[in-house]
């Protein structure tokens, strides 16, 4: 059905998108790569000499880099653990027959639509503040010492906030996957006397495995870039306790004006994200029957 003329037209219709995305990718990426090999600081005028791997060397030997990598891993891992387990439980629950399912689902999903700066500040002040926050009031009314979240368990506090934001996403995806499960298979297993646990373990979980993988991959990509929640709550502190890789790069490039160092960090962040992206792209590719 596609003629030569329509192919030419199609190419013409696709080209603006391709050119824009190509430019958006290649121009900044090659600049980042180039800057990462320069000694280039915005507050130190003069030429920017080529220094080879020096920025990478400083970046890797900087103790805050090690902290940032560990924090990034803990943040991503912690949020994944909470959202995948919680999301699976929520999805199983929401899949049961109940009254007011629509309303309940809306309430569960709502946090996903709250902008990151609002969730960061609301949790920090209205809930986790040791004096005026709800948790603080609750602890004092029980006669306990209120927990100062952001100085005693700073990273865990951030993990909790981000988990609240992403739990709806995991729930929604897993619920969608669960609803495509063949009910007759479940009924047959039930009639053959399979317990709920074995139905879950042998039928539901294998069916969910793919969706869980997708949730993990997509969330990892987004979670590697967590920024606003840290900026409005702790500014990466105390010390470097809540500085992740994204925040560290922001500090070196926009607060310390060290373009070379920030770029070296940027290259590292890109490599990290790409490792995850390769797996994700493979899964998407398999499902795409174009």
């Amino acid at each position: 059905m596609a003629t030569k003329a329509s192919r030419a037209a199609a190419r013409l219709m696709i080209s603006p998108s391709v050119l824009l995305l190509l430019g958006w990718m290649i121009v900044p990426l090659s600049m980042t790569l180039y800057f990462s090999f320069l000694r280039y600081n915005l507050i130190m005028p003069g030429d920017n000499p080529f220094v080879g791997w020096e920025n990478y060397y400083w970046f890797f030997t900087d103790p805050s880099f090690k902290d940032a990598m560990i924090n990034t891993l803990l943040l991503v891992g912690g949020v994944l653990l909470i959202t995948v387990i919680g999301g699976t439980l929520f999805a199983l629950l929401l899949d049961q027959p109940m009254w007011g399912q629509g309303i309940i689902r809306i309430m569960v999903i709502a946090p996903f639509f709250v902008m990151p700066t609002v969730s960061g500040l609301v949790w920090k002040n209205m809930f986790m503040n040791p004096v005026n926050g709800i948790f603080g009031h609750l602890a004092s009314s029980l006669g306990l010492q209120p927990l100062d979240f952001f100085s005693q368990i700073p990273l865990l506090s951030i993990i909790l906030i981000v988990s609240w934001q992403w739990l709806p996403f995991a729930t929604l995806i897993l619920l969608t996957a669960l609803q495509s499960l063949d009910q007759e298979q479940l009924e047959a297993a039930e009639m053959d006397g399979a317990s709920w646990a074995s139905r879950f373990w042998y039928i539901m979980l294998p069916h969910l495995a793919r969706a869980i993988t997708v949730v993990i991959l997509i969330q990892t990509i987004f979670l590697l870039s967590i920024f606003a929640e840290i900026l409005v709550t702790t500014n990466g502190g105390p010390g470097t306790a809540t500085t992740n890789l994204t925040y560290l790069i922001y500090v070196s490039s926009l607060l310390q004006y060290d373009v070379g160092m920030g770029s070296a960090g940027g290259v590292i962040a890109i490599i990290l994200a790409n490792i995850v992206a390769i797996f994700l792209m493979r899964m998407i590719g398999k499902n795409l029957d174009a």
Binding site: L21, F35, S225, S263, G266, A269, A273
Partner: peptide
């Protein structure tokens, strides 16, 4: 082409923060 377009979404924003800021 479609897969390549999607892959651009996987680029972490912080990786291009410096050049975009300077531009």
């Amino acid at each position: 082409v479609l897969m390549w377009m999607l892959s651009t979404k996987m680029l972490p924003p912080v990786g291009v923060l410096v050049p975009i800021y300077l531009i």
